[in-house]
């Protein structure tokens, strides 16, 4: 069994799956209103922005990431804390980032691992209307799907694989 990236992060009996490039891509394709939440690690910012552009997914920049995005000439759809967007995602009545209705898929990437684990826990317990994918470093058991624990090189291949699968559609 794959252990959580931070190995003591064992939440309970209901653990998410370790995804593959294909399963992650399939979940993104299936979603009607996904949202991409980009955190402070910035390790995969270019990839995240490419994904958002390719699939027209609204982007929420947490922490101070909006500054880094602006330096790349990108304006995020929203700028707010990781906990603030998670709180909004919990509310079925929220109209979503672009006012098109609550999201059905939240993709987290590069949020600080342990903070993201907590945000995913909140969604697991209190947002049954939303699926979650974590593309942050290593396995996140609170996400419906997350990465295996990979080296940077393998992770880059994984993410490239996700894009490849999405582009095949």
């Amino acid at each position: 069994m794959t252990r959580a990236y931070q190995c003591a992060n064992v939440p309970g009996p209901h653990l998410g799956k370790v995804g593959t490039s294909a399963s992650v891509a399939a979940a993104i394709k299936r979603a009607e209103r996904p949202v991409l939440i980009v955190g402070s690690d910035l390790r995969h910012l270019d990839w995240a922005l490419d994904l958002a552009k390719e699939r027209n997914i609204p982007v929420v920049a947490t922490a101070h990431v909006a500054g880094a995005m602006r330096e790349k000439g990108v304006r995020p759809d929203r700028e707010m804390g990781a906990i603030e967007i998670t709180n909004l995602l919990k509310s079925p009545e929220w109209g979503g980032v672009r006012g098109e209705g609550q999201h059905d898929l939240a993709i987290f990437t590069d949020v600080l691992y342990y903070l993201e684990a907590q945000m995913l826990s909140a969604l697991k317990h209190f947002a049954p209307h939303i699926k979650t994918i974590s593309l942050t470093r290593g396995h996140q058991p609170n996400a419906d799907q997350s990465l295996p624990n990979l080296s940077e090189k393998k992770l880059a291949e994984f993410l490239a694989g996700v894009m490849g699968e999405l582009n095949e559609s």
Partner: peptide
């Protein structure tokens, strides 16, 4: 705003109880 760090309660001998969702 709650973000459980553990999905269970282990405080009494009924438990462990799964409180997920």
């Amino acid at each position: 705003f709650y973000a459980p760090i553990c999905d269970m309660c282990c405080l009494c001998t009924y438990g462990k109880c799964d409180l997920t969702g």
